[in-house]
C-alpha cells in the first residue's frame, strides 16, 4: 500500500471492573489512547500504519477480560505527507472558542 496513516475510533463497552486492564492495554499499544470515558464504556482513538495495526488493536481490546464489545465507528486512511497540512490557522481557532 502507499504510505498511509490510518486513524480510527472504537467504542468499547465493558464491565465496570475492566477499566484498569483496558488502561494497561492501551498504554502498552503505540498510537492508541483513551479519548474519553464514562461508566461502562470508553472511546479509544487509534492511529497506525495500516490494517494490521488497527485490527490488532481491536482484537486485543476484544480479548481483554470484561470487555463486552468493541465497535469501530470511524476510519480514515490518509497519505502521511498530507497529515500535517494546516486546515485552519491558530487565530480562527481562538475565535471559535
Amino acid at each position: 500500500m502507499d504510505d498511509e496513516i490510518h486513524i480510527a475510533s472504537i467504542i468499547v463497552r465493558h464491565r465496570p471492573d475492566a477499566v484498569a486492564s483496558i488502561d494497561r492495554l492501551v498504554a502498552a499499544m503505540p498510537g492508541a489512547e483513551v479519548a474519553t470515558r464514562e461508566a461502562g464504556r470508553c472511546i479509544v482513538l487509534h492511529e497506525g500504519e495500516g490494517t494490521r495495526d488497527m485490527l490488532a488493536c481491536i482484537e486485543a481490546i476484544q480479548a481483554t477480560r470484561g470487555v463486552i464489545s468493541a465497535s469501530l465507528v470511524y476510519h480514515h486512511a490518509e497519505a502521511r505527507a498530507a497529515l500535517d497540512d494546516i486546515l485552519q490557522p491558530a487565530a480562527n481557532e481562538d475565535d471559535q472558542r
Binding site: S9, I11, V73, D84, I86
Partner: peptide
C-alpha cells in the same frame, strides 16, 4: 492551529461520541 491530522482525530472521536451519546472531550 488545526492540522489535517488534528481534524481527522477530532472527527473520529466526535463520531464515536455521538454514536455512544457521550460528550466530546
Amino acid at each position: 492551529m488545526t492540522t489535517r491530522r488534528d481534524f481527522i482525530r477530532a472527527s473520529a472521536v466526535g463520531a464515536a461520541a455521538s454514536a455512544a451519546s457521550m460528550a466530546v472531550p
